[in-house]
Amino acid sequence: MEVRVKVFGPAVELAGSRVVCVRVEPGIDEAALRNQIAAEVPPLAALARQGRLAVNRAFARPGEPIMEGDEVALIAMVSGG
């Protein structure tokens, strides 16, 4: 399945886009997906390894599977306040 990962903040400039697409097996967990993002989009490697994934607008739990249709976002280097 294809996962479209939303990115924000400095990650947009690094990726050159607000969305990055990766092909994965259904049920891949959040850690494996971050590793795959790091491998397939090298400018995002550091953020993908240090950041967290949100699934359907909530932080993914360790080991949480990603399923077809999930809204996935890479949350890294937040700077609100």
């Binding site: 400095p10 949100a54 280097m77 937040v78 700077s79 609100g80």
Partner: peptide, 8 residues
């Protein structure tokens, strides 16, 4: 907030 809230 500066660690967890998705605002940039």
């Amino acid at each position: 907030l500066k660690r967890d809230v998705p605002i940039w």
